[in-house]
């Protein structure tokens, strides 16, 4: 009676680390989708170079080069974060330099 339970327990215990261990494809998808959504958050303040990096990341992933894909997606994410910061900063900063304000 106890043997089947033990077998289930062992197989469950072994499967947890396997499920938690993401491969390079999953790592890429996570950072790529975060970079994409941050790029969208920049609204009308998107940077051309962010789009270039996203395209390069996608292209590398399509070719199975996940190391390059992750590096490009990481860069895209950093650039997108800077563009979002610019958007937030300019919300008020433009007034300080505008003639007539």
């Amino acid at each position: 009676m106890k043997k089947p339970l033990l077998a289930i327990g062992i197989s469950l215990a072994l499967s947890v680390p396997l499920a938690a261990q993401a491969g390079p494809k999953e790592d890429f998808q996570e950072v790529y989708s975060k970079a994409q959504s941050t790029h969208q958050d920049a609204g009308t303040f998107q940077w051309t170079i962010t789009g270039d990096r996203l395209k390069a990341a996608k292209s590398a992933a399509d070719n199975g080069d996940y190391e390059k894909a992750i590096a490009m997606a990481d860069e895209a994410l950093k650039l997108a974060e800077e563009s979002v910061a610019q958007r937030k900063q300019q919300k008020e900063a433009w007034r300080h330099v505008a003639i007539g304000n």
């Binding site: 009308t44 051309t48 900063a93 433009w94 007034r95 330099v97």
Partner: peptide, 22 residues
């Protein structure tokens, strides 16, 4: 339109005004 003209944009951080006002 005025906000757009004076807001810095892009990786080079320029507004329209950076060139054409300043």
């Amino acid at each position: 339109g005025k906000e757009f003209y004076y807001s810095r944009r892009g990786q080079l951080n320029f507004s329209c005004a950076s060139c054409h006002v300043q």
